[in-house]
Design a protein around this nucleic acid. Structure first.
Lengths: 111, 111
DNA sequence: AAATCAAATTACCGAATAGAAAAAACAGGA
DNA sequence: TCCTGTTTTTTCTATTCGGTAATTTGATTT
């Protein structure tokens, strides 16, 4: 995995991907798919508690940007994660959050 | 760095952070700070080619969410990266992009 | 004190988008 | 074919947010 120079053009593409992950509803969908491997839209409605039309739009976006895969089976459509990279991203973010919490802790304990 | 369970509340916080990174202008700012270590607002205006008020707002957001630090020196304000985690995130994103490009390549070469 | 420079803030506009309701597309029975 | 169930698409409203211009705040200099 070579590291590319971050040109303005590449930064635009990266920002676009971050935007897909910047919505709690979509992260909830991805997380539900991590737990359950593969879920139909109806099942996802229950797991995520999102409205049907709303969920469908989010799934369309997630699929269009390559985060999830779709499989049709009769009238049902099943979605699954393309890969687990998303959660690497979340873990790094969580690492950031932990560090920030530690910093705040230090500042508080000094006073 | 322990991995936390991704509760809906945590996913909201994570989504918020992703949103900060979902804007090309802000990624350009962060990238400029990676190259140059520490820059004043005036210098950042030149490097990023953003308007003054616009840049100031982005910097406020980046600082408020802990991505950059500020240091006042007289009338000048200098900004620097809090840490390089952002670029780990970008690299993972780029890894995703590369994989997707490979997939497309495979599909094309099959036909 | 007045003038100047740096940076932040405010006010406004326009574009993008989440959410919900309704309609449409699609597939499987009866 | 009609009906039912699943999913997508369309349409609408309200909100959010980026960009710009104008103003304000703060610091330095003369």
């Amino acid at each position: 995995m070579s590291v590319q120079p971050l040109t303005p053009e590449l930064l635009e593409i990266i920002a676009e991907r971050f935007k897909v992950l910047s919505e709690p509803a979509r992260l909830r969908i991805l997380n539900a798919l991590r737990v359950d491997e593969e879920l139909s839209v109806s099942e996802l409605i229950e797991k995520t508690e999102l409205g049907q039309a709303n969920l469908s739009k989010h799934l369309g976006l997630l699929h269009g940007s390559g985060f999830v895969e779709r499989r049709k089976e009769g009238a049902f459509v099943y979605y699954s994660l393309s890969n687990e990279d998303v959660f690497i991203l979340c873990d790094v973010m969580c690492g950031r959050l932990e560090k920030e919490a530690d910093e705040r802790q230090k500042i508080l304990s000094r006073s």
